[in-house]
Amino acid sequence: MRRENESENESNGAAPDAAERSLAPAVSRAMRVLDLLAQSPGEPVSLAEIARSLGAAKSSTSNVCTVLEESRMISRVANGYVLGRRTVELGGAYLTQFDQIKEFYRICAESPLLQRQLVQLAVLHDREVIYLARHEGRTPLRLTSGAGVGDRYPAALTAIGTALLATLDPAQVTELYDETTFPALTARSTRSLEQLHAKLALTRERGYAVDEGEVFPNVVGIAMAIPPRQSGDHAFGINISRIVPTDPPTLSREELDSVVETLRHAVSQLTNPMALGTDTHH
């Protein structure tokens, strides 16, 4: 079986990769197919593109895709394949393991201010943040371009990523971003490790992070890190985003103080489950 897989690669002009050298190459290929489709949300990927990305023959790639389609992990559309509904079901099952995510939605529903905001929950993964929850507030302006559940954004540019990076030791941040090219999403995006360290120092000093147009030109993000409840828990970050039609986009001192106070209260509730429901006036 292994020799057959290697022969397929050789006929396709590709050397055997890690997936082919694994004890379960079909499983490895299936995971790589899912990863590839996840990186192209909403955009179908053709069988030929998938095979080329895997460095595998179209025949074996087609077999993998057939099994994934039968299990509803992927779906076939006119121009190729997209992720299937089963991935959403599995993602939802994964998220239910975290009580803080359930509590996040409860807090947003009970808070008069958060009810009207776009509020997100995320975790840090290397140099990115992964969004785990999103509360779409009842605001006159909908931030449709904001990150959805499962989306990844550069941590150094987002308020929520900055808040989480600020929990790391400066030496850890330097190691993480050493010789890294920072993505420039807007003219205000953080461009260097020196700028990032300065932003993190300010975040540690005031206790919250701010993104003023670094990801979207007219969007302000205010975020805080949520201390883990116990050793081994994931460290979450919570963020409020607002559209501010000014250049640069900034909140008034009164607005900022109100958001910061509300976030502090939410962090307190998410850190200490006994605080839930004790005060909902924020």
Rank of each mutant, 00 (worst) to 15 (best):
V259D: 02
S258G: 13
R32V: 10
Q172A: 11
H234W: 10
L202G: 06
Y208C: 05
G146Q: 05
M1K: 15
G150F: 06
R229G: 09
E179Q: 14
P16L: 07
I160P: 02
E136N: 11
I243K: 14
E6T: 13
S11A: 09
P41Y: 03
A93D: 06
A235N: 05
V220I: 15
K199G: 06
V149F: 06
M31D: 11
D233F: 03
E214H: 11
P154F: 07
L95D: 01
H135W: 11
L165D: 12
E8Q: 07
V119A: 14
P16C: 15
R21H: 10
T246A: 08
L47T: 04
T144H: 09
L121N: 01
P16S: 11
R142E: 08
S46H: 07
R116S: 08
V82C: 14
F98I: 13
E194S: 10
T61I: 04
T186Q: 13
H282S: 06
V33F: 03
D257R: 10
V219D: 03
S258C: 09
P249V: 04
L34T: 11
H281A: 06
E212C: 09
V77L: 13
V67Y: 05
E136T: 10
D233S: 12
L54Q: 08
P227V: 00
V149R: 08
G42F: 15
A163N: 01
L202A: 10
E69H: 09
D151L: 09
L157V: 05
A24H: 13
E212S: 13
L47K: 09
S241F: 03
A122L: 04
I50M: 05
R264A: 04
E43N: 15
V82I: 13
E110H: 12
F182Q: 06
G84M: 12
L47W: 00
A57I: 01
G80P: 02
I222F: 11
E254M: 09
S258T: 15
T186N: 07
L113N: 10
T139F: 07
Y81L: 11
T96E: 14
E255F: 02
L270T: 01
V259C: 03
L263S: 00
A159Y: 01
A51I: 03
R106G: 09
T271S: 06
T190L: 14
P245G: 05
S11Q: 13
K58M: 14
Q100C: 07
D279H: 09
K102T: 14
N239P: 02
G42A: 15
T144W: 09
K58T: 10
L132I: 01
R134S: 12
F236R: 03
I101Y: 02
V64C: 02
S241T: 04
V267Q: 00
Y208Q: 07
G91M: 05
P112H: 03
S231I: 08
A57F: 03
R229H: 05
S7M: 15
G146C: 05
Y208D: 04
D279L: 08
L141T: 11
Q100N: 12
R206N: 09
V123H: 03
E175H: 12
L132Y: 04
